[in-house]
Design a protein around this nucleic acid. Structure first.
Lengths: 253, 253
DNA sequence: CTGTTTATCGTCAAGCAGACGACTATGATC
DNA sequence: GATCATAGTCGTCTGCTTGACGATAAACAG
């Protein structure tokens, strides 16, 4: 009964991307404006069809490159080309009514990238932008510039919320927060990543003790920088560890 | 360019199930024997096509019920019917070559169930069984009864490994381990779940202190039981908490 | 030179985890 | 019934981690 090659309902399969970065102390996601119905003119997550000979991860990496110019950091040993991002599968959404035109199953992926100079719009510049995730998820009005009062297209608000939640929890027990930083970064910059993603303030002294004391998290490069003002800070690079033990603790309440 | 309703490659979409339980102190998964090519005669994970009007979670719940008679525990307030299981989406597998016949994208789901009296085979009894996950994943020989030397069909070994890994990590920070227990259970039974899933031995006294001290994890029912031998043990029911803070700590090394 | 900013080191108390002793309440065995 | 084996439950002690926070260091702005 299963796997009858002639009798199965056909589906369209897409990948959608939750691309997150930290800009100006807030967590931002990449949004594209839809140029055609349905949801014409509304903001949506970038994505597209999976090609017939393409793996899901390959399709996600292709869409990411098309949309942002970012490349996926495959090999942890390779110290990352300039525009490197972390990419992982997030979840799959297949409600029969999620696309009014046809049955579409979307395999959402989560990408984390350092703050980039420009969104590098694929076609026209003002159809792609970084937006704070609160703005994209807040449908309860108080749109501050009157632009994004409308919620995201399709079920993309839920996908984005799931991606943000994944990122928030994953930086607790993994070294993924370094994916938001440039290749070399300071402890303060890493702390501001945690503060932006979690939306809390962290004690700089305890944070410094914690991350420098976790083996494999950070390796000093020897250099220092003063780009944040104040006393020069040591520069670090992400260490080999991917899982942090003990984990970073997110303040409660 | 995206979402052209007339031009997209068609996919078959299936759900595959990693159904885990704890039997006789070891973590077991449900396996079905394939009755037709490809991989005829090999063991595989249960699964089937998603119907054209069906949500992914619905399809997974349907397959689970067909294969095991288990029903999904939807409402945490409802104290679970007799055969209740936890069900969640695991990951999606879409390698173009994962099925030799056609392009199949499989949305794998993870189900956790208490030890059941009988596997409740759908059709013929000996085509469905519980097998220790080590037996199903160990392809390096030493098959103890000469039966499961062959690896699982398709990419099901990887799916199973991912599901086991998800279960192992998720019982650390959530109360999911109670999904392996009957409605009422003792601290010792819960500890044996952790020991079986993690494959370690835990100190009964520290474990008892920890789980009874975590708010919302366990609520005493008032009853006691002596089904494990020895001194009668208090019976508990799963509390409302789903996230454990602080988490259970898996011994390292 | 003084104030401001950020980085970094130290101290201290509270809490939690691992190791482990001690006691309790059953059933099994002699 | 005494004894033993088995599980369960309660305590104690010690070391480590954490959170709160004081203090110092090194840059820049006026």
């Amino acid at each position: 009964m299963p796997y009858d090659p002639s009798a199965f309902p056909p589906f369209a399969v897409t990948v959608d991307l939750v691309v997150l970065t930290v800009r100006r102390h807030s967590l931002c996601a990449l949004a594209v404006r839809r140029g055609e119905p349905p949801f014409q003119g509304r903001w949506a997550l970038p994505g597209g069809f999976v090609r017939s000979d393409e793996d899901l991860a390959t399709a996600a990496a292709r869409e990411l490159a098309e949309e942002t110019g970012l490349h996926v950091l495959h090999d942890p040993a390779c110290p990352a080309t300039a525009n490197a991002a972390h990419l992982e599968q997030l979840a799959t959404y297949g409600d029969p009514k999620r696309d009014p035109r046809m049955r579409v199953v979307s395999v959402a992926h989560l990408a984390l990238a350092p703050d980039l100079p420009a969104p590098r719009a694929g076609g026209d510049a003002h159809s792609v932008r970084w937006a704070p995730v609160e703005d994209l998820l807040d449908r309860d009005g108080h749109a501050r510039d009157g632009e994004q009062a409308a919620p995201l297209a399709f079920d993309h608000a839920r996908i984005l919320a799931d991606g943000v939640e994944r990122a928030r929890s994953k930086i607790e027990y993994s070294s993924l927060a370094t994916a938001f930083c440039p290749q070399e970064f300071t402890v303060g910059e890493l702390r501001r990543v945690y503060e932006a993603v979690w939306g809390v303030a962290l004690d700089p002294r305890n944070f410094h003790r914690k991350v420098t004391g976790t083996p494999g998290f950070l390796v000093p490069t020897g250099g220092t920088t003063t780009r944040q003002g104040g006393r020069p800070a040591q520069l670090f690079r992400a260490g080999g560890a991917t899982l942090l033990n003990p984990p970073m603790l997110r303040p409660e309440a």
